[in-house]
């Protein structure tokens, strides 16, 4: 292994972005002068195939997980849709949910909620296997009057977001704080955020 690779990062995580401009300016100077500098060690990344389901106020104490893997039957190394969305077989497992005579239905949706896919109903053990064809998506469990509902109507009990949900726009943040959010479709033209 190369000597002098990453050293442990003991700095604060919050300053990485917020204080970015000052650090970046220093970095630019350091680059120009060829000055040696500290490196930032990577933290352990989150599981790229795991989703934690966290409870809403309707299901205090409940929790769940979604485990993703590429769909099985693809003859290729990875399963994707013709449009290029990854095709995952998901295993949803929950504990602590009380059905109370209602159906516990699991849904996947794009973050914009313009596409909502019914994944199915949790079994008596609180589990479900389903296929998801989105790249960036929400998973949530709702309490519905019937397992046959086609649209989500009941209260959300658990919800989580795919690992890709960590991505959000950089416009207006950190090193890009002077970039116009509105020009890329975020925020209000008059300034400020929602």
């Amino acid at each position: 292994m190369r000597a002098g690779a990453w050293r442990a990062w003991v700095g604060t995580t919050t300053s990485t972005f917020g204080g970015g401009a000052a650090i970046l300016a220093l970095a630019g100077a350091a680059l120009g002068a060829g000055v040696a500098r500290e490196c930032i060690a990577p933290l352990h990344g989150p599981d790229p195939y795991g989703i934690d389901l966290v409870p809403t106020a309707h299901a205090n104490g409940a929790r769940g997980t979604v485990a993703l893997r590429f769909a099985e039957e693809s003859p290729f190394g990875v399963a994707v849709t013709p449009a290029g969305h990854h095709l995952y077989d998901a295993v949803i497992e929950t504990v602590g949910l009380r059905a109370g005579g209602r159906a516990l239905v699991v849904w996947a949706a794009t973050p914009e909620l313009d596409q909502v896919q019914k994944l199915g109903t949790l079994d008596v053990a609180g589990a479900l296997g389903a296929r998801i064809g989105f790249n960036k998506f929400l998973v949530f469990v709702t309490s519905e009057a019937s397992p046959d509902v086609e649209r989500w109507a009941g209260p959300i009990l658990l919800r989580g977001i795919s690992p890709s949900g960590r991505m959000h726009t950089m416009a207006g943040h950190g090193p890009f704080q002077n970039e116009s959010c509105a020009s890329v479709g975020f925020g209000r033209p008059g300034g400020g955020w929602w």
Partner: peptide, 22 residues
């Protein structure tokens, strides 16, 4: 293993919102 890439790159790649797709 990544060594001394320009610091702005390292910072960008380190932030939690920088996602790597499978």
């Amino acid at each position: 293993e990544i060594g001394a890439l320009p610091l702005p790159l390292l910072q960008m790649m380190s932030i939690d919102t920088f996602y790597y797709h499978p």
